[in-house]
């Protein structure tokens, strides 16, 4: 073989070896990458307000707390009893009338979220419960 033929043969062999190396490397790297590629899927279920519903729907005697809270502005209320009930439930309460005036506050309400409440006389107020 002449030197030129040897050189050509060497280039061909190098090209074949190189191509195989590239393919093998690609395959390995892709496998590694695919193993590491993951989709972190989080399903977050928001369940806000369940405590408020529980409080409003629960009863004290024959009346639901929603009705009692609605009557706080007009009724002679035993504030100590209300405070004690809310304390047992770990809650604070702020009640607004239909004009947006705060009529009752029990504890420190800082939740910032309000829920409509029915008031006597066809009126609607708001209660902040946290």
């Amino acid at each position: 073989m002449t030197e030129v033929e040897l050189a050509a043969l060497a280039i061909v062999v190098a090209a074949i070896v190189g191509s195989v190396s590239i393919l093998v490397t690609f395959s390995l790297l892709q496998s590694l990458v695919e193993i590491n590629a993951r989709v972190e899927l989080t399903v977050a279920q928001e369940d806000a307000g369940s405590g408020i519903v529980a409080l409003m729907a629960s009863r004290a005697g024959q009346r639901a707390h929603a009705e009692i809270i609605g009557m706080l502005e007009i009724a002679e209320v035993n504030d100590a009893a209300v405070t004690q009930t809310l304390g047992k439930m770990g809650r604070s309460l702020q009640v607004y009338d239909d004009n947006g005036t705060a009529v009752k506050e029990y504890g420190d309400f800082s939740g910032g979220e309000y829920t409509d409440i029915a008031l006597p006389g066809g009126r609607k107020g708001r209660a902040g419960i946290s």
């Binding site: 590491n36 993951r38 989709v39 899927l41 928001e46 369940d47």
Partner: peptide, 18 residues
């Protein structure tokens, strides 16, 4: 192929139920 993706599906169905 190599991206690590974080997807958070936030559903408010329970709060809507409340």
């Amino acid at each position: 192929r190599g991206e690590i993706t974080n997807i958070e599906l936030r559903t408010e169905a329970y709060t809507m139920g409340n």
